[in-house]
Design a protein around this nucleic acid. Structure first.
Lengths: 257, 257
DNA sequence: TTAAGGCATCACGTAGCGTGAGAGTCAATG
DNA sequence: CATTGACTCTCACGCTACGTGATGCCTTAA
């Protein structure tokens, strides 16, 4: 019968001796038996258990979760895996967003883009805000009232830091889109979908509720027809307004289908 | 002149009082001055500095890195951002791989229930297996022993259904690659990356642990030099062995960099 | 005057080990 | 047989970026 000391098992499995000590200490992997000298001796079942441990550790489970997975046979492994999958995808999404933010910052540093914070804040200034509301209601009638009210309440409930973050995020999304526009990425490509999805999500936050595809497509008209936005967007990239509108409509129709 | 106490600044910026204490303790953000009562008082420059800190923290920089970024004006922010971008993309890539591994594991679990006990593929037959091990150890010496042992135990721990499922998946991956080879898709294109990623994930499962890029590149040599594999692969598509080796190496080098 | 709240400084806890320190154990060699 | 070198053991502190009390002083309003 095969017997392994700590070092042998460590070498075999590729972990450190300290790790085995640790797993013993927290009860995750106990040796098969202890010698009179208090040496740890592992045997076949422990090796297999260690493999299971390392597999799940690689997947990013915590040691506590792994212990539950392995020690409770009634544990729903499938559910645990699915839940973990969701966590992983969120993380991956977050990293993708961070990469975009970094790209935008790099662009800033290179001087390709000179959007300043105070300029950004103008978007939320009371006068501008009032102007936009007026314009929206004139153009689309009373049915927009509810949306405007919701958005207004949402804005008022935000702290300054949150407002700044929201605006920063919007700027970031627009920068990504402008970059795509400059590089002539087709406005119905899946790469654009990712950014457009974030834009739609942003709009949803401003409304304080989900933004349905139809409403989102409708927004394209707003963007196109308000001179203020046109000016701001054309500064980002030539032809940006049309590009944005096309992307929003393509996205909405794809999501609807 | 605006003056903020800890709580006021905390509320303004959205962090906790403890965080400000911590930043003071490690010298990242010192208050403008201390009152006779040892109270911390922050002013405008500190607020701006805190904003910078929080921005970079959001990007995932460590506090130490942030301190260097902000305190050393000669520091190359651009280089730091780019380096950090690489780290983030690697992480995102890793998460994507983990998601694939999880998907495969879920498929395994489902397969355990639904798949019939089928005749095993010849690739896993004991004689063949023994032959491969012999060959590996002759060619690469004792250092492969641990890997071979691990792989062997893994194989033994699998149910027949799981074995069948694994082989089916391998066949499917190889078929995709052969098709790409026939259509002369360049072996370093991103489209191939997806399939190669699945292949690498498969190898990782056989090892029961993650397969690092270098080891994966090394595998290409194995594939190239074993006559059995050559014969099998050339039957799939002419020139397939070289194509596979090139794709594996291109993938490994891209992931490494 | 008293109560409420904000401020301060310890100081321990988190996850998953790395990295010694100091001391006992084992196998082989001179 | 004694020594040597490799291996083992058990503490115990260190790392990140704070959270969470405990304990006590300071300030302000009722």
């Amino acid at each position: 019968m095969q017997r392994y000391t700590v070092k042998q098992l460590a070498k075999l499995s590729g972990v450190s001796v300290r790790t085995l000590h640790h797993y013993d200490a927290i009860g995750l992997l106990k040796p098969a038996r202890l010698g009179d000298n208090r040496y740890r001796y592992y045997e076949e079942p422990e090796v297999l258990r260690l493999q299971q441990i390392l597999f799940h550790r690689e997947l990013g489970f915590s040691l506590q979760e792994i212990a539950e997975l392995l020690d409770r046979p009634d544990f729903d492994r499938l559910a645990a895996l699915r839940a973990h999958r969701v966590r992983l995808e969120r993380q991956a999404q977050r990293y993708a967003e961070l990469v975009m933010t970094i790209d935008r910052t790099i662009a800033d540093l290179n001087g390709k883009r000179t959007m300043q914070h105070d300029e950004l804040f103008k978007g939320f200034s009371p006068e501008k805000q009032a102007g936009y509301e007026q314009w929206l209601i004139e153009r689309y009638g009373g049915e927009m009232q509810a949306g405007v009210d919701a958005s207004k309440r949402k804005l008022e409930s935000l702290t300054d830091a949150e407002k700044a973050r929201l605006l920063e995020e919007l700027a970031e999304i627009e920068a990504s889109l402008a970059e795509a526009c400059r590089q002539q990425v087709p406005s119905d490509s899946t790469a654009i979908d990712v950014v457009i999805n974030r834009h739609r999500s942003w709009v949803g936050v401003m409304w304080n509720r989900a933004c349905p595809p139809d409403a989102y497509a409708g927004l394209a008209d707003l963007y196109l027809s308000h001179p203020d936005f046109r000016a701001r967007y054309e500064a980002l990239a030539p032809g940006f307004t049309e590009y944005l509108a096309a992307a929003m409509k393509a996205h909405a129709s794809r999501v609807r289908s």
